[in-house]
């Protein structure tokens, strides 16, 4: 059984042409990078894989379960327990501190509280001194790191990251991606990262190209 299976999937946004998405079969612990120009469907693909967006056609299985076979509530619960997501727009909860964002994600993933682990993640990604800061008072780069730390804090089976280095400079992009891959490897998680950053594309096992181009 593959961690992710995606067959004949396409999505039609209202008033837009059908957006076909590639067939995928991704194994446990496998690391895939998805590249493609802006508007090629990277975000849409990740949302469909995460069970956030039901595709208009096709079937998506994560760890053997078709998102479409679950009720809304079960889909939300299962996502929390199996998938970690780094959103392109970070989506940190602004009313609580960075550390509380991690604690919350861990709790919703069904894990017992573990401040040592959460602090360790923040330390590893270089923002431990910002643990108690409100997300609104972070720079874009800091917020992106916080979003990555939160996505792995729930020890997901599948880690989805939507352009997770867009706000980082070249040197940091590589080290943060390295850290993300390391965390995923530590818990045996599969990784799917979208990017149009050629510098990090080489760090993955496999590359999936969306839209036109090489």
């Amino acid at each position: 059984m593959h961690l992710v299976e995606c067959q004949d999937v396409s999505h039609s946004f209202p008033g837009a042409p059908e957006l076909p998405l590639p067939d995928l079969a991704i194994g446990t612990g496998e690391r895939v990078v998805v590249t493609g120009p802006s508007g090629s469907g990277k975000t849409t693909l990740l949302q469909i894989l995460a069970g956030l967006l039901p595709p208009t056609r096709g079937e998506v299985r994560v760890a053997g379960v078709d998102w479409a076979s679950l009720t809304r509530n079960d889909r939300d619960r299962r996502r929390g327990r199996t998938v970690g997501i780094v959103f392109q727009s970070f989506n940190l909860i602004t009313a609580i501190s960075v550390l509380d964002n991690l604690r919350l994600a861990r709790r919703l993933a069904g894990h017992p509280q573990d401040d040592e682990l959460c602090r360790g993640l923040l330390d590893g990604i270089g923002i431990l001194d910002l643990a108690h800061r409100a997300p609104a008072r972070l720079s874009r780069g800091e917020a992106q790191r916080a979003a990555i730390a939160r996505a792995v804090s729930g020890e997901p089976k599948l880690l989805l990251a939507d352009e997770p280095t867009s706000a980082l400079d070249a040197g940091n992009a590589a080290s943060v991606t390295g850290l993300l891959l390391e965390r995923a490897a530590a818990s045996g998680a599969g990784v799917i990262v979208t990017t149009h950053d050629e510098r990090i594309a080489g760090m993955f096992d496999r590359r999936v190209q969306l839209g036109c181009g090489p």
Partner: peptide, 16 residues
């Protein structure tokens, strides 16, 4: 709205 969506993405069920 956004926070509720984030909470759901993180695994919060309806009662939460």
């Amino acid at each position: 709205q956004r926070d509720i969506a984030i909470l759901r993405a993180l695994g919060a069920v309806r009662t939460w």
